[in-house]
């Protein structure tokens, strides 16, 4: 499972990194970037969904099916 931020859609509302700082952080523009590789543990899946819902731009996506080893 993995979260992504579409950098072309993100305009810096900052909702994802404010609501779910364990998965997202801000860059020096105040735009969002995923922490690390964006891989999401089962424990953080509800938080990832929260970030998807909270983005007014539809810039955050959460892929439940992507296996962990796809990161490499």
């Amino acid at each position: 499972m993995r979260v992504r931020v579409d950098e072309l859609r993100c305009v810096g509302h900052g909702r994802c990194y404010s609501l779910v700082p364990e998965l997202f952080e801000d860059d020096d523009q105040g735009h969002s970037v995923v922490r690390g590789t964006g891989l999401v543990s089962a424990e953080h899946a509800p938080a990832a969904e929260r970030a998807v819902r909270g983005c007014p731009e539809g810039a955050v996506t959460f892929d439940r099916d992507e296996p962990a080893d796809a990161a490499s």
């Binding site: 305009v11 810096g12 509302h13 007014p56 731009e57």
Partner: peptide
């Protein structure tokens, strides 16, 4: 409250002072 909204608009003109 987590559902997001357009109180500060949307797109590249998103309210600069929103935070």
């Amino acid at each position: 409250a987590d559902l997001g909204h357009f109180g500060f608009g949307a797109g590249v003109h998103r309210c600069l002072g929103s935070h």
